[in-house]
Amino acid sequence: MIAAEYCAKRKRDGTKAWAPATAKRSEYLLGQLTRPLGSMPIADITPADVLAAVRKIESAGNLESARRTLQLASAVFRYAVATARLTSDPTRDLKGALSSPRVTHYGAITDATRVGSLLRAIDGYEGQGMTRLALLLAPHVFVRPGELRHATWAEIDIETGLWTIPA
Protein backbone atom coordinates (compact mmCIF):
# COMPACT_ATOMS: atom_id res chain seq x y z
CA MET A 1 0.00 0.00 0.00
CA ILE A 2 1.40 3.39 -0.97
CA ALA A 3 0.26 5.04 2.27
CA ALA A 4 2.35 2.59 4.32
CA GLU A 5 5.32 3.18 2.02
CA TYR A 6 4.91 6.95 2.43
CA CYS A 7 4.75 6.63 6.23
CA ALA A 8 7.86 4.44 6.28
CA LYS A 9 9.67 7.04 4.17
CA ARG A 10 8.63 9.88 6.50
CA LYS A 11 9.80 7.96 9.58
CA ARG A 12 13.34 7.72 8.18
CA ASP A 13 13.40 11.09 6.37
CA GLY A 14 16.64 12.43 7.88
CA THR A 15 16.27 15.74 9.70
CA LYS A 16 12.63 15.98 8.55
CA ALA A 17 11.68 12.55 9.95
CA TRP A 18 8.43 12.24 11.84
CA ALA A 19 8.66 12.00 15.59
CA PRO A 20 7.26 8.69 16.91
CA ALA A 21 4.07 10.37 18.16
CA THR A 22 3.53 12.09 14.81
CA ALA A 23 4.08 8.81 12.96
CA LYS A 24 1.61 6.98 15.18
CA ARG A 25 -1.06 9.67 14.77
CA SER A 26 -0.52 9.94 11.01
CA GLU A 27 -0.73 6.17 10.53
CA TYR A 28 -3.93 6.11 12.59
CA LEU A 29 -5.52 8.87 10.52
CA LEU A 30 -4.52 7.29 7.21
CA GLY A 31 -5.91 4.02 8.56
CA GLN A 32 -9.30 5.73 8.68
CA LEU A 33 -9.18 5.81 4.87
CA THR A 34 -8.24 2.14 4.48
CA ARG A 35 -11.79 0.81 4.68
CA PRO A 36 -13.37 3.16 2.14
CA LEU A 37 -10.35 3.53 -0.19
CA GLY A 38 -7.84 0.78 0.61
CA SER A 39 -9.16 -1.80 -1.85
CA MET A 40 -9.26 0.66 -4.77
CA PRO A 41 -6.34 1.05 -7.21
CA ILE A 42 -4.82 4.44 -6.46
CA ALA A 43 -5.38 5.64 -10.04
CA ASP A 44 -9.13 4.98 -9.69
CA ILE A 45 -9.60 7.13 -6.57
CA THR A 46 -11.54 10.31 -7.36
CA PRO A 47 -11.87 13.55 -5.37
CA ALA A 48 -15.45 12.50 -4.51
CA ASP A 49 -14.17 9.20 -3.03
CA VAL A 50 -11.68 10.98 -0.79
CA LEU A 51 -14.19 13.64 0.21
CA ALA A 52 -16.80 11.02 1.16
CA ALA A 53 -14.22 9.22 3.33
CA VAL A 54 -13.08 12.33 5.21
CA ARG A 55 -16.65 13.60 5.54
CA LYS A 56 -17.38 10.51 7.68
CA ILE A 57 -14.68 11.69 10.09
CA GLU A 58 -16.03 15.23 9.92
CA SER A 59 -19.63 14.12 10.55
CA ALA A 60 -18.47 12.46 13.79
CA GLY A 61 -17.48 15.95 14.97
CA ASN A 62 -13.75 15.41 14.46
CA LEU A 63 -13.14 18.47 12.32
CA GLU A 64 -9.42 18.77 12.98
CA SER A 65 -8.88 15.03 12.39
CA ALA A 66 -10.80 15.26 9.11
CA ARG A 67 -8.69 18.22 8.00
CA ARG A 68 -5.46 16.48 8.97
CA THR A 69 -6.54 13.22 7.29
CA LEU A 70 -7.23 15.07 4.05
CA GLN A 71 -3.82 16.73 4.33
CA LEU A 72 -2.11 13.37 4.83
CA ALA A 73 -4.05 11.78 1.98
CA SER A 74 -2.86 14.60 -0.27
CA ALA A 75 0.73 13.95 0.81
CA VAL A 76 0.33 10.26 -0.05
CA PHE A 77 -1.14 11.10 -3.46
CA ARG A 78 1.69 13.56 -4.15
CA TYR A 79 4.17 10.83 -3.18
CA ALA A 80 2.44 8.50 -5.66
CA VAL A 81 2.82 11.20 -8.33
CA ALA A 82 6.49 11.65 -7.45
CA THR A 83 7.08 7.89 -7.73
CA ALA A 84 5.28 7.72 -11.11
CA ARG A 85 2.31 5.70 -9.90
CA LEU A 86 -0.27 8.44 -10.35
CA THR A 87 -0.61 11.35 -12.76
CA SER A 88 -2.12 13.91 -10.34
CA ASP A 89 -3.31 14.40 -6.77
CA PRO A 90 -7.10 13.93 -6.63
CA THR A 91 -7.32 15.99 -3.43
CA ARG A 92 -5.89 19.19 -4.93
CA ASP A 93 -9.35 20.56 -5.73
CA LEU A 94 -10.83 19.76 -2.30
CA LYS A 95 -9.41 22.82 -0.56
CA GLY A 96 -12.18 24.46 1.46
CA ALA A 97 -14.51 21.45 1.19
CA LEU A 98 -14.39 20.63 4.91
CA SER A 99 -15.71 22.66 7.82
CA SER A 100 -13.05 24.58 9.68
CA PRO A 101 -12.56 23.66 13.33
CA ARG A 102 -13.27 26.36 15.90
CA VAL A 103 -9.98 27.83 17.06
CA THR A 104 -9.49 27.87 20.83
CA HIS A 105 -7.20 30.54 22.18
CA TYR A 106 -5.57 29.76 25.48
CA GLY A 107 -4.97 32.44 28.07
CA ALA A 108 -1.57 33.99 28.39
CA ILE A 109 -0.18 36.53 30.76
CA THR A 110 0.51 39.67 28.76
CA ASP A 111 0.71 42.07 31.68
CA ALA A 112 4.21 42.04 33.23
CA THR A 113 2.85 42.80 36.71
CA ARG A 114 0.89 39.51 36.69
CA VAL A 115 4.01 37.41 36.08
CA GLY A 116 5.03 37.82 39.71
CA SER A 117 1.65 36.48 40.85
CA LEU A 118 2.11 33.43 38.61
CA LEU A 119 5.61 32.77 39.95
CA ARG A 120 4.37 33.06 43.55
CA ALA A 121 1.51 30.66 42.77
CA ILE A 122 3.97 28.16 41.27
CA ASP A 123 6.25 28.53 44.30
CA GLY A 124 3.30 27.81 46.59
CA TYR A 125 2.15 24.71 44.66
CA GLU A 126 1.98 21.72 47.02
CA GLY A 127 0.86 18.98 44.63
CA GLN A 128 2.91 16.14 43.22
CA GLY A 129 6.67 16.56 43.50
CA MET A 130 7.49 15.99 39.83
CA THR A 131 4.76 18.43 38.76
CA ARG A 132 6.10 21.02 41.19
CA LEU A 133 9.62 20.65 39.79
CA ALA A 134 8.34 20.97 36.21
CA LEU A 135 6.37 24.11 37.14
CA LEU A 136 9.44 25.63 38.79
CA LEU A 137 11.61 24.87 35.74
CA ALA A 138 9.12 25.92 33.02
CA PRO A 139 9.44 29.73 33.40
CA HIS A 140 13.21 29.45 33.00
CA VAL A 141 13.29 27.42 29.79
CA PHE A 142 10.14 28.53 27.85
CA VAL A 143 9.42 25.21 26.16
CA ARG A 144 6.20 23.40 25.37
CA PRO A 145 4.89 21.18 28.17
CA GLY A 146 5.50 18.04 26.08
CA GLU A 147 9.12 19.00 25.46
CA LEU A 148 9.67 19.47 29.17
CA ARG A 149 7.80 16.29 30.08
CA HIS A 150 9.75 14.13 27.59
CA ALA A 151 13.19 15.66 28.19
CA THR A 152 16.05 13.24 28.79
CA TRP A 153 19.41 13.83 30.43
CA ALA A 154 21.10 12.96 27.13
CA GLU A 155 19.67 16.20 25.67
CA ILE A 156 21.21 18.37 28.39
CA ASP A 157 24.86 19.45 28.43
CA ILE A 158 25.50 20.65 31.98
CA GLU A 159 29.02 21.87 31.10
CA THR A 160 27.81 24.37 28.50
CA GLY A 161 24.37 24.96 29.99
CA LEU A 162 22.73 23.87 26.75
CA TRP A 163 19.56 21.83 26.27
CA THR A 164 19.28 20.48 22.71
CA ILE A 165 15.69 19.49 22.02
CA PRO A 166 15.38 16.92 19.21
CA ALA A 167 13.28 17.85 16.17
Rank of each mutant, 00 (worst) to 15 (best):
residue 1 M to T: 09
residue 1 M to P: 08
residue 3 A to N: 09
residue 3 A to Q: 07
residue 4 A to F: 05
residue 6 Y to S: 04
residue 8 A to Q: 08
residue 9 K to G: 02
residue 10 R to F: 02
residue 11 K to P: 01
residue 13 D to N: 05
residue 15 T to Y: 04
residue 15 T to W: 07
residue 19 A to N: 13
residue 20 P to V: 09
residue 21 A to L: 15
residue 22 T to N: 13
residue 26 S to P: 04
residue 29 L to I: 00
residue 32 Q to I: 01
residue 34 T to E: 14
residue 34 T to L: 14
residue 36 P to A: 11
residue 38 G to N: 12
residue 38 G to M: 13
residue 40 M to A: 12
residue 40 M to E: 11
residue 41 P to Y: 04
residue 41 P to K: 09
residue 42 I to T: 09
residue 42 I to K: 09
residue 45 I to N: 09
residue 47 P to T: 15
residue 50 V to H: 08
residue 50 V to A: 09
residue 56 K to A: 02
residue 59 S to K: 02
residue 60 A to Y: 01
residue 60 A to T: 04
residue 61 G to H: 00
residue 62 N to Y: 00
residue 66 A to I: 06
residue 67 R to K: 12
residue 69 T to H: 00
residue 69 T to Q: 04
residue 70 L to I: 12
residue 70 L to G: 08
residue 71 Q to D: 01
residue 72 L to C: 04
residue 72 L to F: 05
residue 74 S to C: 02
residue 74 S to D: 01
residue 75 A to V: 03
residue 75 A to T: 02
residue 76 V to A: 06
residue 77 F to N: 02
residue 79 Y to C: 07
residue 79 Y to N: 07
residue 80 A to Y: 03
residue 80 A to K: 01
residue 81 V to W: 05
residue 81 V to A: 13
residue 82 A to R: 04
residue 84 A to M: 09
residue 84 A to T: 13
residue 85 R to I: 10
residue 85 R to H: 07
residue 88 S to D: 10
residue 89 D to P: 13
residue 89 D to Y: 08
residue 89 D to T: 06
residue 90 P to S: 12
residue 92 R to G: 11
residue 94 L to V: 12
residue 95 K to N: 10
residue 97 A to Q: 07
residue 97 A to E: 13
residue 100 S to A: 10
residue 101 P to D: 03
residue 102 R to I: 14
residue 103 V to D: 10
residue 103 V to F: 14
residue 103 V to L: 15
residue 104 T to W: 11
residue 106 Y to N: 15
residue 106 Y to F: 15
residue 107 G to H: 12
residue 111 D to L: 03
residue 112 A to F: 12
residue 112 A to I: 06
residue 114 R to M: 14
residue 115 V to E: 00
residue 115 V to S: 01
residue 117 S to G: 11
residue 119 L to C: 02
residue 120 R to A: 08
residue 121 A to K: 02
residue 122 I to H: 09
residue 125 Y to H: 06
residue 125 Y to S: 02
residue 125 Y to A: 04
residue 126 E to I: 12
residue 127 G to D: 10
residue 128 Q to R: 15
residue 129 G to D: 13
residue 130 M to E: 14
residue 133 L to K: 12
residue 133 L to P: 01
residue 134 A to C: 13
residue 135 L to H: 09
residue 138 A to R: 07
residue 138 A to L: 10
residue 142 F to S: 03
residue 142 F to V: 11
residue 142 F to K: 03
residue 143 V to R: 00
residue 143 V to Q: 05
residue 143 V to T: 05
residue 144 R to L: 09
residue 146 G to S: 08
residue 146 G to L: 14
residue 146 G to Q: 10
residue 149 R to H: 14
residue 150 H to M: 14
residue 151 A to Q: 09
residue 153 W to A: 08
residue 153 W to V: 07
residue 155 E to S: 01
residue 156 I to P: 03
residue 157 D to K: 02
residue 158 I to N: 05
residue 160 T to G: 03
residue 160 T to L: 05
residue 162 L to N: 02
residue 163 W to R: 05
residue 164 T to N: 12
residue 165 I to E: 10
residue 166 P to F: 04
residue 167 A to E: 15
